[in-house]
Design a protein around this nucleic acid. Structure first.
Lengths: 272, 272
DNA sequence: ACTATTTATTACCCACGGGTAATATACGGG
DNA sequence: CCCGTATATTACCCGTGGGTAATAAATAGT
């Protein structure tokens, strides 16, 4: 079975025989970090919970202390990625600048997200592996992201920083390039995530930017961190997703969404 | 179990109680058409062979007369898509024009492929669901496609039709946009595949085209693609992807790769 | 019509992996 | 020190679905 050797290396909170008292959330997040990496590496269906557990020096059932099932883990991975994107959009929207400025800012941030695990989970995981309920949340959130791109482009067209074009198609084209990063980018290559992000921000907007005239101004600044905004979030843990078919009536699943579709803002923590 | 009603609708060669004598290849392709549609609709892992068979008015084991397993069906779907792309590249390379001309031509054709089932299979299916052997073929072919984009861009830079840029990143950006079409495009929407393709050909090259000055003439040329180079591809049939059980020696399923990595050119037919 | 071959069906097998039950161990508090 | 709670383990269940064996029905050739 699992060797359970002291091994040494990694940073699992469950070092075989040691202080295993770390905060619950820390462990929960460790599960997600491990899971997202494995899911990306082997594919959601190719990865097993036993393997996830093994990498954490625990056994499969222990995972069920933190999640109701494999699909929930998948959802939570996705959810974290989504929060990161939401933050990008929030920051970008908060900052000033023309439509083009905002578009470029969003591209840079979004592109860089796509070079990291949680960002990749947004585009590499299949929505159909989620429960009906979570799938809807994801779909809604995806539309919101798409909306952000379109809105910036439309704003740019209106303020003159962007050429006249179909915002919908232009957004698809840009988002496609960016999302694709999540498929080919491998850390450790010749290009850093940052470099790719900045190159893309320029390349992808050259086609629609109004280069002639237009000073584009760009004050830079703006993007101040916008230091958080707590957001309570209170949730309990319902007894598993009812598994086979029928969906429970009321209670159950209260959580799920948490910050996903809502504000987000790094609130994920307590559960149960 | 399965109703086996005359139903009516679809074009399955196996109309319940009727002339089921159609040519083998026709049936084989019918399986692939059904499979690719189902795989796209429900995901490879979500779709079952029973469901594929049911849609064809046959039963699961009958599928094994045409394919060695689910993963081979997946591979064949992918393979057809790949042949279509190969044809695009071949045609584009054969035609004349500057690097930019060729790039645009390829974009239009490739984009349109992405709006159809077999094209989508190129970007929606997970390479990890294939056998080791087929996975390598797919990876090689993908690199070839990427190469085509890069070569056209590089040729364009050299002949002056394209701005100086990193062909690798530019190719990724363009391919990303195009591949993404395979994820969002739904036939029956407001835009036809053709319309999307042509819009993208323009939008995606505006960023790198040398609009100012440069007549795109410039002798240069160089980057001739060096028309093809056959590469025979000869493969025999290894005893199933490893897995359990032994495998028959000869006959049955000789095909496998066939034109996949090689020329393609609508050669798929004969088998056994 | 008889036979060989192809193609389909029914009835199975069984490995894999998600999920659960029963239980053991650690910890924190009174 | 004892008890309750949180957390982990061992041992198990079992549905699903890919794949196979045995066999029947259709087809072609002579």
């Amino acid at each position: 079975m699992d060797a359970r050797i002291p091994s040494s290396n990694n940073e699992s909170p469950w070092l075989p025989f040691e202080s295993r008292r770390r905060a619950r959330d820390e462990k929960r997040e460790a599960v997600l970090r491990t899971a997202v990496a494995l899911f990306l590496e082997q594919g959601y269906h190719g990865a097993t919970l036993n393997e996830v557990a093994k990498r954490l020096n625990i056994t499969k059932p222990a995972l069920y202390n933190y999640f109701r099932g494999k699909d929930e883990i998948l959802y939570e991975c996705w959810s974290i990625g989504n929060e990161l994107v939401d933050d990008c959009i929030a920051e970008t929207s908060a900052g000033g600048g023309s439509g083009l400025d905002k578009l470029r800012k969003l591209i840079v941030r979004y592109a860089e997200l796509m070079t990291a695990d949680y960002g990749k989970s947004l585009v590499r995981f299949d929505i159909r592996d989620l429960s009906e309920h979570n799938r809807k949340i994801v779909q809604t959130a995806k539309r919101r992201i798409d909306r952000a791109f379109r809105d910036y482009i439309a704003a740019g067209v209106e303020d003159g920083s962007v050429q006249a074009c179909d915002p919908k198609l232009a957004a698809f084209a840009i988002a496609g390039s960016l999302n694709w990063i999540g498929h080919w980018f491998q850390p450790g290559g010749e290009l850093s995530g940052r470099a790719v992000a900045e190159e893309f921000a320029i390349r992808l907007t050259e086609g629609i930017a109004k280069t002639t005239t237009q000073a584009t101004s760009t004050r830079k600044t703006t993007a101040r961190k916008a230091a958080a905004a707590p957001a309570a979030e209170k949730v309990d843990k319902p007894p598993r997703k009812g598994n086979a078919t029928r969906e429970e009536t009321s209670e159950h699943h209260t959580r799920t969404a948490a910050g996903a579709a809502g504000q987000s803002k790094r609130a994920r923590s307590r559960l149960r």
